[in-house]
């Protein structure tokens, strides 16, 4: 049987837990949003000129170095970056992102074996970017590109192959 005393006690305990939970939620939810949401209002990177098509040889990968702006938190850094560019024929050219699709190591072109080799876990990719060997889960990632007046322009995003 409930006495007046035990009813009051029950109310106190419920109120302590309820108000405490509300305070906790009001602190935890904004904290989680603050830490996990992507920053807003950041400008996309620009298109940059990376190579002159006339100076590329067909089916001979070249590592081209170009500068681009990257948003790094509150800073915009102008940094050097690279792409492996392959002129497939006179019409088409691809620019691979320079990181192995396995764990992000920088791979290189092995002219003797005629494929891209990653030094970390020996993934190998064909000149078309297909996985030939090793643990890489998908073909090489590509930059979006376009060609204008014989110049290769590299865009702001990287396309991941399925």
């Amino acid at each position: 049987m409930e006495t007046q005393e035990s009813t009051r006690r029950g109310f106190y305990v419920a109120a302590i837990q309820g108000l405490g939970a509300m305070i906790g939620a009001a602190l935890a939810v904004p904290a989680a949003i603050y830490l996990l949401y992507k920053p807003t209002g950041q400008k996309e990177a620009q298109w940059v000129e990376a190579a002159d098509l006339n100076q590329l040889q067909i089916k001979k990968p070249e590592e081209v170095v170009f500068r681009r702006k990257r948003i790094d938190g509150w800073r915009t850094v102008n940094e050097k970056t690279t792409a492996w560019v392959v002129k497939m024929d006179d019409q088409s050219v691809v620019a691979y992102s320079p990181n192995c699709t396995h764990l992000g190591c920088a791979y290189h072109w092995d002219a003797q074996q005629n494929n891209f080799i990653c030094p970390c876990h020996t993934s190998a990719f064909s000149i078309e970017g297909k996985v030939l060997a090793g643990p890489a889960p998908r073909p090489l990632d590509r930059y979006v590109t376009r060609v204008e007046s014989g110049k290769l322009l590299i865009g702001p995003t990287i396309q991941k192959s399925a």
Partner: peptide, 20 residues
């Protein structure tokens, strides 16, 4: 060099930043 810019980043670009 960075304090002001990083605080500005918190209050203009981070969701929940102005609240925190």
């Amino acid at each position: 060099g960075d304090a002001y810019d990083s605080l500005r980043y918190i209050v203009t670009q981070l969701t929940g930043g102005p609240l925190i």
